[in-house]
Nucleic acid binder design. Structure first.
Lengths: 352, 352
DNA sequence: AATTAAGTTGAGAGCGCTCTCAAATTACAG
DNA sequence: CTGTAATTTGAGAGCGCTCTCAACTTAATT
């Protein structure tokens, strides 16, 4: 089935190409009967304008790109990215945008494709996830002046437009909740792979500080957001006998639960676990996780809106948005029980 | 930064637009010194051809679309789709294609966007997942004559090109393994939402038949691939005292484990569980799941290759590919133990 | 050396659309 | 009824590229 052109629709309805174009783009100043006649032909023929031709002249493709840096494999055992993608897709649907997805396999891919993406003039703007630090890509992006919205706070926020959740408050809330439950030996499993983890740690420290609990290096471990890393991190934490642990994402919390179980520790009786994300693993776990819910879908949706603002130029460039998060209490947390732990804590409390 | 054009590169290197085009597209019959001179200018300026203009004339965008039907939300608690997407993305990277993702929120979205996608001439071909039956979309697609590869066997395979794993053999293998372990009361949790589930059930029946075990309706339950549905299905199965259950995906297996645990049944001591997929939930579960591994990434990658064949016309159209799968034995299965169960089975065996 | 074949290049058309500009038509004021 | 302004339309240029065709140059053949 050969595709119709503007010209042909014009011929069929006895007007010029230009007039048909006007009808399609809803320009004023068209005689109603003409508009109607053309519209009828369009409907009858099922004509759709060729977006490629349109893009060529208008310089607007209505395609936006989503970049997810390498380590694709690992990335998808965590529902964070799928959820984010789905939010972004919704945002695109709502704004009549096409989403094109760039999942990189390697740093080399990133370097190559990357130039290719911006250079080709195909897409109008870019959403970039800060899954992992990548200064090189970041710099290229910044220099290009191309419309970019980062999801997740980058290290260098000066000239960047990004959206993130309020990780500091999230970390604070998690720790505060455990403190209010009476815990004093509160461990944390954080991460260095991006800034979010560090901000969550920062919130945790802030809460400890406010409650007069000294920060203890032995109670801090790091992972990479994967289940296995949470498992190892928890194993290294167990000898220091925390009565609670704040794990900075659900997947690592799953790993922590496994480590605790294998060590013969019950959750929440012996150790309370607070997690972060509230994605599917939180309710798949046993016990189900008390966790900080972050609005991942909404983040994606809003990122699209922000990017659209950038593209249209009706929004100022360095723009920072932080979304709120909320504590969801489930079965993995409880008040301090164990006498030995309590004794330790009292000793600690006295210590300050 | 203004984008350079072919014309300008030509001017800079003292040749015509056409010659530059030839250099870029690696045509033969160019004087080496000219080729080199032009290439130098291209490298120096960082010129990239405008893909939109190129698409307009060549009618090839090198963009392919991936359609994931509605119920996006639910879809992403199951890592199947993310994994598939990542496979497809790899296939695209390897073939220099851009992937554009269409996640639909509603049937209406599907109907609208759908015409929009094919009609606009933006994409060269389409990969469509058969996550859920949708005859209407299927028909539109077939009529259009547009290059389409389905992932997952559709109901009507006559004129369709699709790739899937060998679900029948997969189901057969799962059931056979349980039979070999001595199980006779083997339940199954399948699904009606697409053909895969039914094929797995078919394989299961085949195995039972070959081992002379009568098929028992009471031991069949259905879900929708979600954890909760697996949970309910298992609950409905427990009263019929299966000694093993074959659950047709990992996520429902997670639900089954929960139901079994709550009923006080141990896995694998009281009930063996074989699952399907071998995606992340399989190893996140406790106990880790014996499961049929399907090569989801590979499926995605191959789908891209097939689609490319279709687009280039160097592959015949109705083409059916089935990928093999393999049994992965983990901790959720064991030989029959319980006396009461064994007695039941003996009674049953005599019955045949 | 003459002829033919191959290699090498540029001019120009055209992909399907948008948008400017000017011409033609209609409306309204004096 | 004329002059002016607003409305309505089409012609044509042009977005940046590919591709055909013809012209010119060089190599191969007799």
């Amino acid at each position: 089935m050969k595709r119709l052109t503007l010209e042909e629709i014009g011929k069929l309805s006895g007007v010029s190409r230009a007039t048909v174009s006007r009808v399609i783009n809803n320009y004023p100043h068209i005689r109603p009967e003409i508009r109607e006649r053309v519209q009828t032909i369009i409907d009858q023929t099922g004509y759709k304008p060729n977006v490629v031709a349109r893009t060529l002249v208008s310089n607007r493709s209505n395609i936006i790109g989503l970049i997810i840096p390498s380590v694709v494999q690992q990335v998808f055992s965590d529902p964070y990215f799928p959820t984010l993608i789905s939010g972004i897709a919704r945002g695109c649907n709502a704004n009549n945008l096409v989403l094109s997805l760039y999942l990189f396999d390697s740093l080399e891919d990133e370097r190559n494709l990357f130039q290719a993406i911006i250079g080709t003039g195909l897409i109008d703007g870019l959403i970039v996830t800060t899954a992992r630090r990548n200064q090189e890509m970041f710099d290229t992006l910044q220099e290009s002046g191309f419309p970019v919205v980062f999801v997740g706070e980058p290290d260098d926020i000066a000239k960047t437009t990004f959206i993130d959740i309020d990780n500091i408050t999230g970390g604070y809330t998690a720790a505060q909740y455990l403190l209010e439950l009476g815990h004093r030996r509160i461990a944390i499993i954080s991460t260095h792979i991006n800034r979010s983890g560090e901000s969550r740690l920062e919130g945790y420290r802030k809460a400890l500080h406010e409650y007069g609990v000294p920060f203890d290096d032995h109670l801090v471990a790091y992972g990479d957001f994967s289940l296995d890393s949470g498992y190892s991190a928890m194993q290294s934490l167990i000898p220091h006998q925390p009565s609670a642990v704040f794990v900075t994402n659900d997947l690592m919390a799953l790993g922590s639960l496994r480590a605790l179980r294998e060590a013969g520790l019950r959750v929440p009786e012996d150790v309370s676990v607070v997690s972060f994300d509230d994605l599917s693993p939180a309710t798949q776990a046993d016990p189900q996780l008390t966790t900080i819910r972050q609005p991942v879908q909404q983040t994606g949706k809003d990122a699209v809106t922000m990017l659209l603002g950038l593209i249209n130029g009706d929004v100022q460039h360095p723009q920072h948005v932080f979304l709120p998060n909320e504590l969801i209490v489930r079965a993995s947390t409880g008040a301090v029980r164990s006498k030995s732990f309590r004794k330790q804590q009292e000793a600690l409390d006295k210590g300050c």
